[in-house]
Structure formats: structure tokens, C-alpha cells
Design a protein around this nucleic acid. Structure first.
Lengths: 233, 233
DNA sequence: ATTCAGTCAATTGTCAACAATTGATTATAG
DNA sequence: CTATAATCAATTGTTGACAATTGACTGAAT
């Protein structure tokens, strides 16, 4: 049976649609960090009222993509190594919990779904399609979290992913080589599918911790390079 | 030097004040789970416009205290064992991360603050003041998280605490005996203050896991008692 | 008795006008 | 020339009116 799409979906509300539109533009990099958001301009472009835009901007603020200075302005959230550090440290523990619960609750159906998500990643990696790899990567993580049966975790994780994509675009964290990426995910998938909760949690955490390490390493490199330029003598 | 209160604080915005007012009423138990929230009535009571109330309700929705059914109604969020389970599992990993970071970054000043927060709990426990104990308990956890220097963690933790208090009020989880409570917190405080990150994380996690166990144990008891009433033969 | 379309009151969703605040600009005093 | 106060345009904050949607109620057809 195909689940009938709920007619009471909230997506038809104008403020949600406006938020989706602006979110896409932020996450895709079209609107860079610090970009000023004018209610009037957005209202004109999206052909809705200012009140609707305000509602959308408030949603995006609660998602961490927009910042508000009361009585003054709205801006796209800043991107920095510290922001990225916050996201990855949070992500490590949230995905750790998700992987543990997923392993404990795996069913034949969810295992199949997980295997499928992994094979999509494999396919993308073999094709070498950069964008498809990123999508499949996030989707695999989303699948694991979805298996947890933890509503709040699922929602927070989704928000986190959007923020990670946003920061990635602007921090310029280089991609890992596909072989290691694939093996990391295979191990995680197998741990979850086999019900090894401890191992699943540990793999999910170290997977993200590794990203933090790479991030900080690159940031140190950049800093020392900048210092070298500043005072080359 | 006393920090000058920022004049640009967002608290003077009417929607924030309205949200605070409604939040207080929900967390304190005045508005029970499922209680219907009428925009017009709230607007009348708080003497602001409906638009302002809408904005407040959206904030509270993003905080997990209110639910929206589009075009139909706003309600106080449901309380249940599952909700409480979600909160405590999340809390375990978030406070685990917070305690780890706090231990890594402890300074003389923050250690003093932590010691003070603990002694407040001690004082409340000795006095046997139920409400003061709960406040001091949450405040101690807040202090640890605050030491992490992790903005997103601090914000999410604050939201989590509000939700926990709300659920506690309505699930009716009985209090632990003060002795064990105090010793748990003393151990956590000492681990953080001494910079033992691994131990701090582990203590923070098990402290919360224990609450989950108690929660589930009581829920099973209630269920079997209910089953006993239903089919006593 | 039951189903189904129509009606209606209650409620939420959207909008456009108005008020308040801010930061930049200009004018003024020293 | 600098510091300070007054002014102003741009922008956000708040409101009340209007539109759309829902769920309950009604009554006719079967």
C-alpha cells in the first residue's frame, strides 16, 4: 500500500513555502553568510506579504540558518570554523545515539532500506559524481537516524544536516577520498544491520570526530599560512 | 565590573514576552498537555494582537512545548512516557558532550562557579526543600553545559530542560532520594573540575540513563496495574 | 437508520496600513 | 577640527481587517 499523502500537510502554508525557498537559497550557497535579508525585498520577490516573510525568517532563525538583530536586520548566519566545530561535535553524539537505537530496533524492512541507501552511495562513488556522493552520504545518515524511532532526534538531525551543508559550502572543507568514505559507511551499515549497538554508536561518533580533526587541521594550516603572509620576516 | 545589560536585548519584543508568559504557564503545569490554545483568547488576556500571539506560538512550537494543526488549532504538547524517553535519551548524550567539553575547558573562575552551584544543591537538599532542589539540580546542569563554550549545545540544552520540566510535571516521575542525587552530582562536579573528560562524560550519561530506567520501570508498573484492573480474573 | 451534500459559526491564515526604532547624515556648539 | 545634538530615511515591529479553511450541524434522499 502506498501511503496516501496527507492533505493536512503544512507545506501549503505560505510561510512554510517561503521558508523552503529561502532555505534552498541559503543552503545552496546562493546567499552567503552575512548576506542581509530585507523583508520588503523578499516579500516582493516571493509575492507574499511582509508578515509571511517574517514568519519564514523566524523559522529559519530557529533552524540556525538566519540571525536576527532586533529592530535592525536579518542576516544569513555566519560561517566559521567554530560554527562547523559546533555542528560536528553535536552531530557526533546525535548520530551516535541514532546509530545505537537503530541497531537495537532494526527490522527486516529497515535493514533493506539501509542496504539500499548504502548501495546508492556505492554507485555514486563508483561514478565519481561529487554531488551525488554528498547527497547519498547525507541520505544514508538520514536513514540510520530514521530507524531510531526518535522523533526529536530525527527533527534535530535534519536541521543539523542543513546547517552542515551550509557551512561546508562556505568553509570549503575538502572531500575525503571515496575509498575511506565508503568503508566507513559500510562498517556503520553492517554494525547497525547486525544489531551491534555499541559498535554502531562508536563508529558513528568516530566518523564525525574524524571530520572535526580534518576541519581543525585545515584551519590551523590556513592560520599559519595567513600569519606567514602577515609577517614573512 | 558588572556587565551592562544589553539594551538590544530581544526580550522587549512583544512576541518574546508573550512566548515567555505562555511558556511559564505550560512548564508550571497551569496549561496541561492537550490544552487548546486559542489565538483570540490569548491575545485578549495578554493584551496584544493576534499576530503577536501567532509569533509566540510558533516559537513555542519550535521549542517542543506547543503543537500546531494547520488551519485548525494550537495545543499544548502531549506528555507521555515516550516523550519523556526521547527527552532523557537526548539529554544523556547532550550532557555527556557538555560535561566532556566542560572538563577540557575548566578555568579557575568556572570551577568556582561550579562549586557554588553544587553547594546550592547541597543546601537545598539539607533543607529538604523539594522545589529548591529541582531548581538547583537543573541549575547545576546548566552550569556544566555553560562551561562547554558550545553555543548550540547551550541553547538546545535550555530548550530540553524546559521540556523535561513540563513532562515531569505531568508524568509524575517521583523524586530520587536526596543522598544518591547529591552523590551523583558531586561525582560529576569533581570529574569536571579535575579535568577528567572521559569520566565527566560517562557520569553525565549514566546519570540520565538511570532516570530513563526509573521512568520505564514505573511505566511498566503502571501498565501492569492497569491491566490488573482491566482483567482482574 | 444512514449517508451525503449544503450551510454556518468558529478559528486560523494572509495582508496592508500604521507605529517604533535604528543608524547615518547633517547641523551646531565648543 | 571635534564632539554632540537634531533630523531623516530606511527598516523592522505591531495591529486590525479581511480571506480561507475546518468541523459541526442540518436536512433531504435512499
Amino acid at each position: 500500500m502506498v501511503a496516501l499523502e496527507s492533505l493536512k500537510t503544512q507545506d501549503r502554508l505560505l510561510d512554510r513555502q517561503a521558508a523552503s525557498s529561502i532555505r534552498r537559497q541559503i543552503v545552496s550557497g546562493m546567499m552567503p553568510p552575512g548576506h542581509r535579508l530585507l523583508e520588503t525585498e523578499l516579500a516582493r520577490n516571493l509575492e507574499v506579504s511582509r508578515g509571511t516573510i517574517r514568519s519564514a525568517l523566524m523559522q529559519l532563525t530557529s533552524e540556525g540558518l538566519v540571525c536576527q538583530v532586533a529592530f535592525t536586520k536579518w542576516e544569513v548566519a555566519p560561517a566559521s570554523v567554530h560554527e562547523a566545530w559546533e555542528l560536528y561535535t553535536l552531530r557526533a553524539v546525535l548520530e551516535g545515539l541514532g546509530a545505537r537505537l537503530a541497531a537495537e530496533r532494526a527490522t527486516p524492512a529497515s535493514r533493506t532500506q539501509l542496504a539500499k541507501a548504502f548501495s546508492e552511495l556505492e554507485k555514486a562513488a563508483k561514478a565519481g559524481n561529487r554531488e551525488a556522493i554528498v547527497d547519498a552520504d547525507f541520505n544514508l545518515h538520514r536513514t540510520v537516524i530514521g530507524m531510531s524511532g526518535h522523533g526529536r532526534l530525527i527533527q534535530q538531525h535534519e536541521r543539523l544536516i542543513q546547517q552542515v551543508r551550509f557551512q561546508m559550502t562556505h568553509i570549503g572543507l575538502t572531500a575525503r577520498d571515496y575509498h575511506h568514505l565508503l568503508e566507513d559507511h559500510r562498517a556503520l551499515k553492517d554494525a547497525v544491520a547486525s544489531g551491534d549497538a555499541d559498535k554502531a554508536e562508536q563508529l558513528a561518533r568516530t566518523h564525525n570526530s574524524a571530520e572535526v580533526e580534518r576541519l581543525l587541521a585545515e584551519s590551523v594550516k590556513e592560520k599559519s599560512a595567513a600569519a606567514g603572509r602577515d609577517s614573512p620576516g
